[in-house]
């Protein structure tokens, strides 16, 4: 990276804030911090960071309001940090415009990977590749063909659409709702079961071992994510 990316961390717990600041600095990012929601919003407005790490459990205002405020004027990538077991919050955050999430306690490696993905999305918004390649997997958008390990995999139109949406957003978690809306056009919450079955079928066609998937990862209760480079 030529320029240092600026990451804003909005987190109220001191130790976590410290740990994040040090680790991100070590990994080549510039870090600015805020420990309250309102502080965080003004930080964003003044400093114009490249990415925001937002803790959902802030003392003053609700994490969702922060997202809404930021999204009203910017498409800056937002990664929310939530406690394990708060699926509903995560889904709401994602639906409100957050790009990704990570659950506490997390491993630094995972966080760094997600930060990379989120930043890349920003850069690559204009350029959409004709062919997506990742290890043994190949998806040709133009010709609408998929290859795994050199062999073509035959997908139904819906399966292909699902896969393309995932691949276009590779590395990013997509909620059930988002996927249903993208592929079927309407958001019917009761239908996430059919989505699951579709995904399971898709995995069986693409993955060698569906219990240990390489490409399509499930975030149980939240949605799905396609692996990134």
């Amino acid at each position: 990276m030529n320029e240092k990316y600026k990451i804003a961390i909005i987190e109220d717990d001191k130790s976590i804030l410290n740990f994040l600041t040090v680790s991100l600095n070590t990994n080549g990012y510039e870090v600015i911090t805020a420990s309250k929601g309102l502080e965080g919003i003004s930080l964003f407005l003044n400093e114009n960071p490249d990415l925001i790490l937002l803790d959902l459990g802030l003392p003053d205002i609700d994490g969702l309001s922060v997202i809404r405020q930021i999204r009203s004027s910017s498409e800056v990538p937002i990664i929310v940090v939530s406690a394990r077991g708060q699926e509903q919050e995560k889904i709401e955050a994602l639906d409100h415009g957050a790009d990704d999430y990570i659950t506490k306690p997390f491993y630094l490696g995972e966080l760094l990977a997600r930060i990379r993905v989120a930043l890349r999305k920003r850069r690559q918004k204009e350029e959409s590749p004709e062919v997506f390649v990742l290890d043994d997997f190949q998806l040709d958008f133009a010709k609408r063909r998929v290859f795994v390990d050199g062999e073509e995999v035959h997908l139904t139109p819906i399966e292909f659409k699902l896969l393309s949406v995932l691949v276009e957003n590779a590395g990013k978690v997509l909620t059930h709702g988002f996927l249903i809306r993208s592929v079927w056009g309407y958001a019917n919450d009761d239908d996430s079961q059919s989505l699951r079955v579709f995904m399971a079928n898709l995995r069986r066609k693409i993955e060698k071992n569906t219990a240990d998937p390489k490409y399509i990862r499930t975030e149980v209760g939240v949605g799905y994510r396609f692996a990134e480079k």
């Binding site: 079961q193 699951r196 399971a200 569906t210």
Partner: peptide, 19 residues
């Protein structure tokens, strides 16, 4: 209760215990 696909459950279990 929701109808969960077994593959998803096993995959998540695997990733959690991996470490």
């Amino acid at each position: 209760k929701e109808k969960e696909v077994v593959d998803d459950i096993i995959a998540e279990t695997a990733s959690r215990v991996e470490r």
